[in-house]
Amino acid sequence: MPARISRQDVAHVARLALLDLDDDELDRATEQLGAVLDHVADIEALDLEGVPPTAHPLPLRNVFRADVVGLVLDRDEVLAAAPSAEDGRFRVPAVLGEEP
């Protein structure tokens, strides 16, 4: 059976997900993801022609919240849980990279 996911695909996906894989991990992931995708391919036996997708099991509509101020967190408590903070803000390394 042809591989369902290539080593390059796995590398691409790891990049998108911000995960580093070394060569061995890449090989193993390619094999393991391939095996799962092979199993998943059993879906292809089903006739899904004209079957609409269901993204969510609930038939709810129009669930709203009133525009009223509620719980606000204490900044000190929030920043105490942060890896690094300064001046009431979350500290990160100098940002290099493209803005969205």
Partner: peptide, 21 residues
């Protein structure tokens, strides 16, 4: 008055990280 998906205030010019939930 509040954010799109939560009840934290939508207010310009507040001290950093005080309008958060």
């Amino acid at each position: 008055e509040t954010k799109l998906f939560s009840a934290a205030p939508n207010r310009f010019g507040a001290a950093p990280n005080t309008n958060v939930d």
